[in-house]
Design a protein around this nucleic acid. Structure first.
Lengths: 218, 218
DNA sequence: AGATAATCGAAACGATCCGTTCCGTTTAGA
DNA sequence: TCTAAACGGAACGGATCGTTTCGATTATCT
């Protein structure tokens, strides 16, 4: 935005790098997803378009970097609670707060949206970004298994799908103000169902109320 | 694409209407969301751009109509099962099958994506389309309440958020092949938690494992 | 020390799509 | 018979895209 920033030799210029991420985040916050164009980012960052295209193949890649840069502080700030269920609920709360109170929510929404149009963005989201993100909740669930709170036969990925599916749904429909009771209810439901003997305790075994009779039709 | 299609007087031409929806669906299936432009749809449908702009304010509105046109057959084909929990699980299965096996999934993904960029599309999705869609599962849950399977104090919207959040999450990450056990597990978890005495039975009351102490930080 | 190579920002390009506007034609309803 | 609305065709100014060329800068290799 100010002083000229020339090449620093045959190496990537970290100032340009930071200026570009700053500009992208600012544009996202001010004008939304549609306002973030490579053209506008380059203009605002005082950078050249070739510089952007050199380092980021598409808008999704740029937004992922914006999101991850902001996410570090959030994850570090959250203390680990001793009880796995409380810790899991607090993680969900922290993530939804983060989405609501920082530009990250808009960034994350945009990443998901772009993945629906661009196969490359989808691959980056599903095969790279998401598995990394799911490690934190998975570790908490593994602690719950070790503590005997969750049956060892439970598919932990399914629990994450259930709880973070809820969070995504609220994010994408702009309803990011869950009450404490709602979060505790959702996480409580997941933990109760995954407890030994619950309907989520085993991936393969049938559920009492609905025998494995294949439903009619189709 | 074929014969010329002139005005039929001062009334909307249903042939043009159908041709435009057909063209949009075809383009969506062949070239994805980015391939659906008003320009391309008009070209393929043999229609004029003013005709499109006359009837649809934006791409989201057009895609919503494409989606809803295909959805009718799906909902009509599904029989109502006597047991509410089985019926709910079958609905989830039918919806995910529908998303996977018809162009509707791509259309729905695109609608959600566009809502993240365009406030008008978000309003249409959240305030118009979604409430209509949620009526069917809500009616099933109401039956479960009447049957005493779900506590009357339960927030039925939260159950829908939970189960269809799961479905959306799978849709948006292109993992639309749930096993029967997964669906039964998710729905079973929701119903068990919403049963009288379960963690979802009341929206306001605290949950046993985690008293309403506000979590630290933030 | 000097040559190499990769970086930087600026500018311009052809192409595409947007959203709108005008136009002449057609036909249902008043 | 006449009005009003819908139809498709064509063109517009504007924005963004993704790429290319350019001269200048400077760390790294020879």
């Amino acid at each position: 935005m100010a002083k000229p920033r020339a090449s620093i030799g045959s190496h990537r210029n970290p100032e340009s790098h930071a200026a570009i991420l700053d500009a992208a985040a600012a544009l996202l916050a001010e004008h939304g997803y549609a306002g973030v164009t490579f053209e506008a980012v380059a203009r605002r960052a005082g950078a050249g378009k070739p510089t952007l295209y050199r380092w980021w193949p598409n808008k999704a890649a740029l937004l992922i970097e914006v999101y991850e840069r902001e996410k570090v502080a959030m994850e570090a700030a959250r203390p680990t609670l001793p009880d796995p269920q409380e810790d899991f609920a607090d993680l969900v709360r922290a993530v939804m707060d983060f989405w609501r109170d920082s530009p990250a929510g808009q960034a994350f929404r945009s990443i998901i949206a772009e993945a629906q149009a661009d196969p490359a963005a989808l691959a980056a989201l599903r095969d790279d970004f998401l598995p990394r993100t799911r490690e934190v909740p998975r570790a908490i669930l593994a602690r719950a298994v070790a503590a005997g709170r969750i049956a060892p036969t439970t598919d932990l990925g399914l629990i994450i799908d259930l709880v973070f599916g809820f969070a995504w749904y609220r994010l994408l429909t702009h309803r990011l103000t869950p009450t404490q009771a709602e979060i505790l209810g959702v996480v409580g439901a997941a933990f109760a169902a995954a407890a030994p003997g619950g309907p989520l305790a085993s991936t393969t075994a049938p559920v009492s109320a609905a025998p494995p009779t294949p439903p009619p039709g189709r």
